[in-house]
Design a protein around this nucleic acid. Structure first.
Length: 879
RNA sequence: GGGUGCUUAGCUCAGCGGGAGAGCAUUACCUUCACACGGUAGGGGUCACAGGUUCAAUCCCUGUAGCACCCACCA
């Protein structure tokens, strides 16, 4: 056997740079339409240009890359379109922060100046994130990289807005919206997160004008009372029946407001009466509309008090709240304060408390869009994986409210709406009207607002392929095949792509959606800056390599749950890669030394056939698991196969043949070894692209193509079940022998003769002598059909088809062997008893399937045989 | 308040109607010619709890508890 000159360990850094450049420069990531192939399209969830790669991106990218690399190898026209998202609100906030450090503000720069800075930001950080995606090994088609603010995508956005406006699906209205006073913009319902917070419940008494009766209300927000325009009670509530239709007076502002009755009021909660502030609460807004109440704004866009009462004007909410509570105390209207835990809406970007505010905004009418979007999922035109997320999706879609799409931000797609500066008439179109308004005035101004960032990403699957132009790419690659994304953006993004795709293209945007969980730390906590428990993927790559990071993210992965991640997983990954590296070194030596290509199947040995059988099994299993997006199981099956079957069993079994000149089937061993190694490299390539490509390049077998574009393995129909069973028997003999030797404390360097008694497997066992010598520490192996003439002083290993006798010579303790056999005997007896309990149960014999009953009978016979043999040995030793 | 899911070895996770599994960690032994980032053998689990269905339940059904996530206008 030749020794191959190879580094002791795989060096990731060098290989990663080398191979990534090689793949990219040779165009292996680039995909063109090919009528002879089936397209397989994945659109990247475009990362924001706000920051750097985090572990969640690493997981998401790895899963997409595993899938696209397999599909590429399977001969699909595999396209993975990359790109980035302008992320309006998040990016704008970052830029504002940056300006603040320079002593600048948005207003000081003006819209144009601000946008110039924003584009500079994009050029810098958009490039950074792309470089980092490449570090992971992502095989995206970079020639097709897109950005949500690209001209093409912007045109798609304008067209959608204009068309839907003309259809009446987009409208402008003055409504109560979620307002973030920090980001200074409206946000959609989906962008509000609710957090538990310790607050108080204040009880306030509202008297009637003549003080003949009064009503107490309970509120978590006393400051909004300045805008109260009614008190509501439940119509069934007799406590308040006498005052329904009458009035009470709001303290401080001394406004006389009606007492109204509506079933939405919970009689049991608080006092059973609720103050109505239509301008600052969704529930109250609805009630206000229903009862035609006046809407009085209390709080402005900055979260400051409006001048309803002079002394509170301009105060922030909490200051005003304290003042008002004090004043109510003085007036004697505050009857009780109790602590109260409640959920408060927070902005998902900046986590400031969201303020419901009356505002004129643009909305998408959802009802008609939601229905078909639910239908395609129910009809399985779109398969959501894991399946249970289907329910989550449908439930949300069925209860969807209109989508507020306008944002009071500058960074984004500006709304293509123009207003007459005289009469305010609205014109929606590609550009500013040149003609006069119907009022006769000719002066227009464009809407200042931009669109929700998700409005443009909703179009991503088709806008990236050239839509609204009916391009050839669009026809070929759309609908896309699979979307792989985190569960956290199911509503923000996945849902909106589905209804947008259906509406704009008449087709589903993708056929499958694969959703994965969040990456958490080892204790299951979210990774966050404040906890400082994050794992930096770039650091992990620097220390362990991109392959190791990818492996560590997939190992033990399931799509249902969040992923608990710890750096221990990187150590496991590194050990695996090391094992792969060294096994390859061994294989290269074997094939360099042998005319392995001249394999003759006639000379294949049982262990070769066993290996081929196992190989077919793993090819099928890995392919099936990956097609089900069971990445964790696919990798686990590969791991087990590679480590146990390939390395520990097969390589060890063929070493005697490879080491001996002229051994029977030497070329066949080398060939099977080669065949298995190539298959392992191919199956592992999607998971570990760099080390597998490096090893494949080092393999001196005359191949021309790099691994990335070789054919994915397919199982053959070779059937070697008899040989397979023989090797399984041999394995159990070997482990039995090792077991008793370890029990007897026999050192490995002490070889012993083996006498194998077998009526059925004599030839096979005799031929396996070199394997038994290597793996079972045998000196010589004698095979005989009966136990005639076997010496009494021997240790035994019993199997159903063969018994191994290991003569003692001098070192073995007879008493210990008797003890061991006694334990064996008890074990067999227990097994027999268990089977007997079943077989003596008439119900079991009568009702269980016949095959199962036969199986148990066979088991009993086998155990009985082993028990008898053990008893016989005991009797002999006891003499 | 509703919904969904989870609970299997110290940890991360498989499995699944008929003898409890893997990896890591741990114990003992071994530097044997690919690999000590290795090898061999071992220890460790009333498969959350309580009922039910069944000849048979870790696996199916119901309930309970704990945990997680999602949704929702009880002020």
């Amino acid at each position: 056997m030749q020794q191959i000159e190879m580094d002791k360990y795989f060096e990731p850094a060098e290989a990663e740079t080398k191979w990534y450049r090689f793949w990219e420069e040779n165009g292996y990531f680039h995909t063109e339409r090919d009528a002879g192939k089936t397209p397989y399209t994945i659109m990247i969830p475009p990362p924001n240009i706000t920051g750097k790669l985090h572990i969640g991106h690493a997981l998401n990218m790895t899963l997409q890359d595993v899938t696209i690399r397999m599909k590429r190898m399977q001969g699909y026209s595999a396209l993975w379109v990359p790109g980035t998202d302008h992320a309006s609100i998040a990016t704008e906030a970052k830029i504002v922060d940056m300006l603040k450090k320079e002593g600048l503000t948005k207003d000081a720069l003006g819209r144009e100046g601000f946008l110039k800075r924003a584009w500079e930001w994009r050029d810098e950080y958009g490039g950074t994130i792309i470089k980092q995606l490449k570090k992971l090994g992502s095989s995206c088609d970079w020639k097709r990289e897109r950005f949500t603010l690209d001209e093409g995508l912007s045109q798609a956005v304008r067209k959608v807005f204009i068309d839907m406006y003309n259809e009446g699906l987009i409208y402008r209205g003055e409504r109560l919206v979620n307002w973030c006073p920090c980001c200074h913009t409206s946000i959609s319902d989906a962008e509000v997160e609710y957090e538990e917070e310790q607050g108080s419940l204040w009880y306030i008494r509202y008297d009637s004008p003549d003080k003949s009766y009064s009503v107490e209300v309970a509120t978590t927000r006393p400051e909004t009372m300045l805008g109260d325009t009614a008190v509501a009670v439940n119509p069934k509530d007799e406590r308040f029946a006498h005052m329904i239709g009458k009035t009470v007076v709001v303290p401080i502002v001394n406004r006389e407001i009606p007492v109204i009755a509506d079933p939405f009021v919970e009689m049991e909660f608080g006092t059973g009466a609720v103050k109505i502030t239509p301008a600052h609460d969704f529930n109250d807004f609805a009630a206000g509309k229903k009862f035609g109440l006046e809407i009085i704004k209390v709080i402005d866009e900055d979260g400051k008090m409006l001048p309803l009462v002079e002394k509170y004007a301009g105060q922030d909410i909490l200051t005003a709240r304290n003042g008002i509570v004090e004043e109510l105390k003085t007036l004697g209207c505050l009857t009780k304060i109790e602590p109260y835990m409640h959920k408060v809406g927070k902005c998902y970007r900046c986590h400031h408390t969201v303020e419901p505010l009356i505002s004129k905004q643009w909305f998408v009418k959802m009802e008609s869009l939601a229905k078909p979007a639910i239908q395609v999922v129910k009809d399985k035109e779109i398969t959501i994986i894991p399946e249970r997320d289907e329910k989550v999706y449908c439930h949300w879609m069925e209860n969807i409210q209109d989508w507020c799409i306008s944002r009071q931000l500058w960074w984004g797609h500006r709304i293509p709406a123009y207003y007459c500066t005289k009469c305010g008439a609205v014109h929606v179109g590609e550009s500013m009207p040149t003609e006069a308004c119907s009022c006769g005035h000719n002066g227009w101004v464009q809407d200042e607002d931009t669109l929700d960032t998700w409005f443009s990403s909703a179009l991503w699957p088709f806008s990236t392929l050239g839509w609204p132009t009916e391009t050839e790419d669009l026809k070929y690659f759309y609908p896309t095949t699979t979307l792989i994304t985190g569960r956290d953006i199911i509503f923000f993004w996945v849902a909106r792509m589905i209804f947008s795709g259906l509406k704009q293209t008449g087709k589903v945007p993708f056929k499958k959606v694969v959703m994965h969980g969040l990456v958490r730390d080892a204790l299951g906590r979210k990774m966050s800056k404040s906890l400082n428990n994050g794992v930096d993927p770039l650091e992990a790559i620097a220390e362990f390599g991109a392959d190791a990071l990818r492996f560590s993210l997939i190992q033990g992965l399931n799509l249902e749950t969040d992923i608990k991640y710890s750096t221990d997983k990187l150590t496991v990954a590194k050990a695996f890669i090391n094992k792969l590296w060294n096994s390859a070194k061994f294989v290269f030596g074997a094939i360099a030394d042998t005319d392995f290509q001249s394999c003759d199947t006639v000379r294949l040995q049982p262990e070769d056939k066993w290996m081929i059988t196992k190989l077919n099994g793993v090819i099928q299993a890995v392919t099936e698991e990956l097609d089900k997006f069971e990445y964790g199981l696919a990798l686990q099956k590969l791991y087990d196969f590679f480590w146990n079957d390939f390395c520990s069993t097969y390589i060890e079994m063929i070493k005697p043949r490879l080491m001996n000149e002229g051994a029977v089937g030497k070329a066949e061993a080398a060939h099977t070894l080669y065949r298995a190694m190539v298959t392992v490299l191919k199956l592992l390539h999607p998971f570990l692209p760099f080390v597998t490509e490096e090893l494949y390049a080092k393999m001196n077998d005359g191949h021309k193509e790099p691994l990335i574009i070789t054919k994915w393995p397919v199982a053959t129909d070779e059937n070697y079940s008899a040989d397979y069973e023989n090797i399984e028997l041999l394995k159990s003999l070997i482990s039995g022998i090792r077991n008793v030797r370890a029990n007897m404390n026999i050192q490995p360097n002490r070889k012993t003769n083996l006498i194998v008694v077998t009526a059925t497997k004599a030839d096979f066992i005799q031929n396996a002598t070199p394997i038994l010598q290597k793996l079972a520490f045998a000196k010589e192996v004698f095979v005989q059909p009966t136990k005639d003439g076997i010496p009494t002083n021997a240790v035994t290993v019993e199997t159903v088809e063969a018994t191994v006798y290991i003569p003692f010579e001098d070192l073995v303790d007879v008493a210990a062997e008797i003890e061991r056999l006694t334990a064996e005997k008890a074990k067999y007896q227990e097994l027999i008893d268990r089977v007997d309990r079943q077989l003596s149960n008439e119900q079991f014999v009568a009702k269980a399937p016949k095959a199962k009953v036969d199986e148990q009978r066979q088991k009993r016979a086998d155990y009985q045989k082993l028990l008898a043999a053990t008893e016989e040995r005991l009797a002999a030793l006891n003499k």
